[in-house]
């Protein structure tokens, strides 16, 4: 649990409270898998788990998207290029991209949940020929709250990726769908008997998405979710992130619904 000091290469404001930091990797052999996270440390203030949101094929920088929601994240997003952060990791399980090979791929994200799935989208696009239809469904609060809007725009222009975006509230100037992200599921093209779904967002959004996908015929071993729990140590030592027999920090965050065996439906488990 020793952080190492790393330089910040750039800081970009994505949304009023959300920033993307590019951090110098500890070495040329540093790599991560889509879905993993690091522990970022603001010297003397504290440490938080932050998912990696960059391209897994780019070894020159560690890209992390942070929403300022407390003392530590506030300190992290206040950094400027040249400052340093403490880094540990990468930690946790990855989106199982192997499971999606030869199949239709459905990626569903809500809100800031797009950050942990961006490496997955990029990885799938880097090896596009391995997959069938690839669909990204994204739900956000409002058009102003769309994360990575430029990149979404770029992805929408591709012929080999279907991107559907919905928001919960919009002014009349918005030309896209308004409604929950599950309402997009019926509008996208995939074969539920052979597709793999990767879901990341607030827990309630994931619950309803799972329910909708199961109704569409998805089996729970092809449904991947990224769980959120209180992760303090990242290595399965501190106990805070326990869910049943799992420590989400090391047995997760990415898990299949089959692994969880319905435990995400139980109150306060």
């Amino acid at each position: 649990m020793r952080p190492t000091a790393r330089r910040i290469l750039s800081v970009e404001r994505e949304l009023p409270d959300t920033y993307t930091l590019e951090i110098e990797p500890p070495g040329s052999d540093w790599s991560f898998l889509p879905g993993q996270y690091t522990m970022l440390y603001a010297f003397g203030i504290g440490e938080v788990p932050i998912s990696i949101s960059g391209d897994p094929s780019d070894a020159t920088r560690i890209v992390q998207t942070i929403r300022a929601a407390g003392a530590v994240t506030d300190a992290l997003v206040a950094k400027v290029p040249g400052d340093f952060v403490g880094l540990r990791g990468p930690y946790g399980t990855a989106w199982d991209t192997k499971a999606g090979e030869g199949r239709d791929v459905l990626i569903i994200a809500g809100g800031i949940g797009l950050a942990p799935v961006r490496p997955l989208v990029l990885d799938v696009l880097n090896h596009r020929d391995r997959y069938g239809n690839v669909t990204l469904l994204y739900g956000a609060r409002s058009p102003r709250d769309l994360l990575f809007a430029d990149q979404l725009q770029e992805w929408r222009g591709r012929f080999d990726l279907e991107v559907l975006i919905t928001v919960d509230q919009a002014e009349q100037t918005w030309r896209g769908p308004v409604g929950v992200v599950t309402s997009l599921i019926g509008r996208s093209s995939f074969d539920p008997d052979a597709a793999v779904a990767y879901v990341c967002g607030p827990e309630v959004m994931m619950r309803f998405t799972i329910q909708e996908l199961e109704r569409k015929g998805f089996s729970d071993d092809r449904l991947y979710v990224s769980m959120e729990r209180n992760m303090k140590c990242g290595i399965g030592l501190c106990g805070h992130c326990q869910l049943g027999r799992f420590f989400i920090c090391k047995d997760g965050p990415v898990m299949t619904c089959a692994q969880m065996a319905g435990s995400c439906w139980i109150r306060e488990v």
Partner: peptide, 22 residues
């Protein structure tokens, strides 16, 4: 079960990481 506490010296030059029981 434990938690992680980060402490900073008054002048900000030294930091400690402690592990209280939780």
């Amino acid at each position: 079960c434990s938690t992680v506490e980060d402490h900073l010296s008054l002048d900000g030059s030294e930091a400690e990481r402690a592990r209280p029981w939780d």
